[in-house]
Each structure stands twice: as structure tokens, then as C-alpha cells.
């Protein structure tokens, strides 16, 4: 513990990241460039999220990490351990008790409150990237609010699949200004981005960008008048806790076509099971 500065990064670096975060909060949805550091983990494992978490953590914080909703997968466990070692902060798996939650590709089912910070790991922060490869051009499009191209992507979806088939990283517009990639969260989570009492921070380590949503920011998902946005999920109850309103993972259980649907948010599911809810696949 004493071998490291609190939360691994040196104070100058944290200061630089905090400035980027503040700028991001001041201009919701705008991608702020920052001098991303090498972190002791590979790119794609959440280097951006880890740097943002390191910059916002204080010794009094209680830290939670989820990886696609689960607290117990490799990515979540290793990042939680990382901050236990380098910052010595308390950790938890309970959403309501955490003050800082780092997440990979999910928003917890339980409502977040004021005073909580949600940190997203972002692989590619630029929503226009796959349509327009030139960074100089995408920056110009953001600054001039030329977002017609984003709808071309949705148009292509409908023409090919008959409906908007984008199921994750569904583009949103922030306060009727910036179009933003909400990181690869399922589109089921998109409505939770809007008007959230918590601070939402997005960090992309490899791409060196930070962006943010301050509390109570209006976030709308892009759509067409005749093909409105639909936050869909698997049409089943959870096999373990029988929840009807949570986002589900499909789990293949044998080689004979057997499958079950379970909540992707493990904390939410456990809490419900402890409260006595029981699904049809529960042991």
C-alpha cells in the first residue's frame, strides 16, 4: 500500500484527469481529450475507467465494480482488487451502498441516488467513427452539429433488418446538443442514462477521451418517427429470482438446447432471492 500513491496514479496525473472530468461535466456529451497513462492492464480491460475511478476516489469512498452486471467475473474482480491494494478503499457488491461504481457495459438495475458516481469503461468513444473514419471530420461534425450521418446508420439497420437492429452502444443525444456513444451498454439501459441523480463519467483509455453526464441531464435515444426507440430485452422472467423488469443474460445449460435466462445484474438478483423471490430454475 505505501509503495503506491493513493489510487495508483500520481497527484499531477489525477489533477489532469479531474480537469478533463470537470470540463466534460461542464459540456455534457463533449469528448474531452486527456493524456491517458499506461495502466498495469491491457487496453480493452478498462484502462480509461480505471483512470477516471482513480481520479475521483477518496479514502472514504466505498467502491463497486461490475462487468456486464456481474460482480464476480475476472474483469470486475481484478479491478476491485487493484483498488483494494492501491487505494485501500472499502469495497462492496451492493449497489445502494457504493459511492463509486465502475461498470463495464451495464447500468445497475437498482436506482442510483445523488452522491453516487458511475464510471463507464468505453472502448470507442466516437459514435460516428464507423461511418466517418477521419477524426478531423468527426470533430467538425460535432462542433457544427451535423448529425445526419448517425441517422444513416439507423436507416441502414432498418433497410437491412426491418427494424433498428442496433442493440448496444445505441447512440444518444445529450441535452439536444451532442450525439454521444453511451459505451456498449444494452439499449435496455438507455432510458436510465436520462435524468439520473448520479454523476456519470465515461473514460476511454486507448482513445484518450473522457466525457460526462452531470446529474439530471436529458438524454434521448435517436430514432425515426415511424420507427421509435424500443428498449427491448429478452421476453422472459429471470430463472433465479423471477424478476420481469430486469435485463437478462441467456445461459446455455446443456448440449440439448436447454437454456435459462438470468438477471445480468448479480447484486440485484441475489437481493431478490434473499427477499424470497424464486424463479422456475432456482435450485
Amino acid at each position: 500500500m505505501t509503495d503506491y500513491n493513493f489510487a495508483y496514479l500520481d497527484e499531477q496525473t489525477k489533477r489532469m484527469i479531474r480537469r478533463a472530468i470537470l470540463k466534460g461535466l461542464a459540456i455534457p456529451g463533449y469528448q474531452v481529450p486527456f493524456a491517458s497513462r499506461e495502466m498495469p492492464m491491457p487496453y480493452g480491460w478498462g484502462t480509461g475507467g480505471v483512470q477516471v475511478s482513480a481520479a475521483v476516489l477518496t479514502p472514504e469512498d466505498r467502491f463497486k465494480v461490475i462487468d456486464q452486471g456481474a460482480d464476480d467475473t475476472t474483469n470486475a474482480v481484478s479491478i476491485r482488487k487493484f483498488f483494494e491494494h492501491t487505494a485501500g478503499v472499502a469495497t462492496t457488491t451492493k449497489t445502494a451502498e457504493a459511492t463509486v461504481i465502475q461498470t463495464r457495459h451495464r447500468i445497475p438495475e437498482a436506482d442510483l441516488g445523488e452522491g453516487q458516481i458511475l464510471v463507464y469503461q468505453v472502448p470507442i468513444p466516437e459514435p460516428l467513427r464507423f461511418l466517418e473514419p477521419r477524426e478531423s471530420e468527426t470533430r467538425k461534425m460535432h462542433s457544427l452539429e451535423e448529425y445526419g450521418l448517425m441517422h444513416v446508420k439507423l436507416y441502414e439497420d432498418i433497410s437491412r433488418h426491418g427494424h433498428i437492429a442496433t442493440a448496444y452502444a445505441y447512440p444518444v443525444k445529450v441535452e439536444a446538443r451532442y450525439v454521444m456513444d453511451p459505451s456498449p451498454i444494452p439499449k435496455f439501459d438507455n432510458p436510465k442514462l436520462s435524468n439520473s441523480p448520479a454523476i456519470q463519467l465515461f473514460g476511454a483509455g486507448r482513445e484518450q477521451r473522457i466525457y460526462a453526464l452531470p446529474p439530471y441531464t436529458r438524454v434521448t435515444s435517436l430514432d425515426f418517427e415511424d420507427h421509435p426507440f424500443d428498449p427491448s430485452k429478452a421476453d422472459h422472467p429471470c430463472g433465479l429470482c423471477a424478476a420481469e423488469d430486469s435485463y437478462l443474460d441467456e445461459v446455455i445449460v446443456d448440449d440439448a438446447g436447454g437454456r435459462m435466462f438470468v438477471c445480468s445484474d448479480t447484486d440485484f438478483c441475489e437481493a431478490r432471492q434473499n427477499a424470497g423471490h424464486k424463479g422456475k430454475d432456482a435450485a
Binding site: E146, G148, V152, F224, D226
Partner: peptide, 9 residues
Amino acid sequence: MAVGARNYG
């Protein structure tokens, strides 16, 4: 779409 058309049909 660049000039604001938002009706797929």
C-alpha cells in the same frame, strides 16, 4: 437526414 428528415417511410 442531414437537413432534418426523421421519417423512415
